[in-house]
Structures are given as structure tokens and as C-alpha cells.
Nucleic acid binder design. Sequence first.
DNA 1: CGTCCACTGGAAGCCGTGGCGC
DNA 2: GCGCCACGGCTTCCAGTGGACG
Length: 344
Amino acid sequence: MITNARVLQADWVPREIVHRNPEKNLLQTALQPVADGGRPEDALITGPSGAGKTCLARYSLQQIEEERLDIHTKHVDCWAASKPFRVLLELLDPVAPTHDIHRTTARDTMLSRLRDVDAPYLAVLDEADQLGDPGLLGELYSIPKLTLVLVTNDEQSLSGLFDERLRSRFRSGVHVHCDSYSLDTLVSILDRRARGALEPGAVERPQLERIADAAAGDARRAISILRRAARRAMDDEAGVIDGSHITPAIPEAAREQRQADLERLNDHQRAVYAVLANADGGAAPKAVYEEYTQRVSSPKTKRTVRDYLGKLQSYNLATATGEGPARRYHVVEIDSPEAEPAAE
DNA sequence: CGTCCACTGGAAGCCGTGGCGC
DNA sequence: GCGCCACGGCTTCCAGTGGACG
């Protein structure tokens, strides 16, 4: 059944990107000067989750790496590395020694090491809206050899990190927007993956349509469902993937994502989530806090719990409705359509 | 309609941590 | 070994906002 599992991994970058040609060309035009020794344009990639932003960015990095040997590239996931220190460490990793860098190394030291880099350096900041620090982007942009590609599904909160100077710089840069994939495109993406990963004939078009439909435009989710369905078919020793493999794979993929999101939280944040998960029809902020204090041995303050609630929302684990005293918090149900809302 | 009050989120300051220089 | 410093996580304080209620 599965001949090359790697192709079904979320971070697999295909040899050729076939469904994002205009976007791909736009980005490559912006970045091409790096390969030619010139000054590239600033680039920003926006679009909802699973729309291929990361794939597009990684692909473009690979293309430029293949053209030029004396160029550094790096892909930084700002969700995993949201603190300035972590981002700088990741950025230094391919270009400078980092063994003597520790948690308390001054930011200036790290920045000046980045400034000392002699070759062009192309870095993708994925989920750049997660960068907590508005100053960091400005500092990074002042480094001459460093070209940044910012990737975000939340343009609003990203622009909150811009000061006026950065904003005008980005207005003149290149903005690549990736819309959610249509059903047909998603089927076609799944088809290419299936051909690369599975035995010929292992899955038919109606089954791919079923998966694409459940994924609602999100390629990452679609591929995750296909991977799980293929695994089930293999365990069944079935020659082809059918509905009995796909049906359970759909909620499984959603739960897997939810589980991964929950694991990024600390114990207190998970306790707050548990409070919301237990409350039917949403919970008022006051009730959330009171219930939370019952659940943990040494509760944090209300203010901190408010930050936790904000974090749950940014992880798409919870939503808030109403303003002021009418405020209510709810968990995002994984089976509901808004489980993966198309963020602006 | 005006007042009250719950809630929000920014700002500033505290504190524990852990490497560094002396 | 000791004080220093930067940092992240947290608390404290507070101004602003908007729904609820008399």
C-alpha cells in the first residue's frame, strides 16, 4: 500500500509546485536578485492555514539554494520559537557558531553576529505574527545581508508588529496571497501525493474527493487524512482505500491536530482549557477563573489567566463571544465547521 | 438615559534563573 | 564564590470599553 511514507508527511516539499504558479513566480521575481547578487525585495506571504504558504516559501528557498552555493537560507517556525532569543538563535545557527550562546546572551551580541555574515542570507519567518516583540523585526531589517520572507495567516496581528517605517517598506515590497484551495485543486494535490506515496491504484478519485471535501480547503489537513486512511487500509491488508478507512480518519486527523495543540500548553493553560471543555454553552470569565482555581493547587492571578485565554484563542482551541460583561468563552469543537476557521 | 460594574489588555515592576566576569 | 545582568513569567495597577440594570 504505502511505498514512500515520506511523501505523506506534512513538511514534505514537492519537486515541483503546480498549483501556485502565479504566486510562485511573484515570489521568485522578488527573491531572484539574491541569486544574482543584488538586493531582493521584501516579501510577505499571507493566506489561511493549509493554503500552501509554508510549502511555497520552502520551495522558493530550495530553488535559490540550488542556484547559488554561497548563500545561506533558513526556515524559522516562529510558533515554536516565538521569543526573540529563540528566533535569533535559529537565525544564527547556519551562519555563525552558537555553542557559546545561552539564554542570557545579550540580544545585541546576537544581532551583531548576524551583521557580520558576509554572504547573502535568505530567511523565512513562518507564523511571523507569533513574534511577541515588535522591535525585533525592525532590528532584523536593519541587517543588510539578511532578506526576510514573512509568512502569516493573520495579517492583522502581524501588522501590529510594524512601526511606520516597516509598514511603508512593506507597502513597496511584494505581497503574495494564497487563497484556500478549491476542491478540485485539493483533489489534484492529493492525487500527486498518492502517486508518490502509494501503490498505483491504491486510491480512486471519489475517495480523494471525499477527503478533500472534509478538509475544507486545507491541504495539510487533507494530507493528514490521506495518511491515516492509507495506514488503516494497510492494517486491513486492503488493496485500496475505501470509505471505511476514510470515515474514521477524518475525526482522527482533527483529534491529532487538537492533541498536538494541547501539548504545547503548560499545566495551567491546560486546566483553563479543561474548564472551558466542561462548560456547556460557554463560560463567563469570572466562572472560568473560579473553576480554574478549584482545579489547580497554586492558581495564577486573573490577569495571567486572561493571557492564557488569549493563548487558547491564538491556538484556535477556544473562542470568545460578547463584549464586556456579556463575554463568554467556549472551546472550539473539533467536529464543528469552525474548528479550522479561515483566518484573515 | 445615566450609572454601575465586569471585563480587557497595556505598562511597569518583581523575582527566580543561570551564565559571566572578577 | 559572589555580585551582575538579561530575560521570561508573573503580578499589580489602572484606564478604557460596553452591556446590564434601575
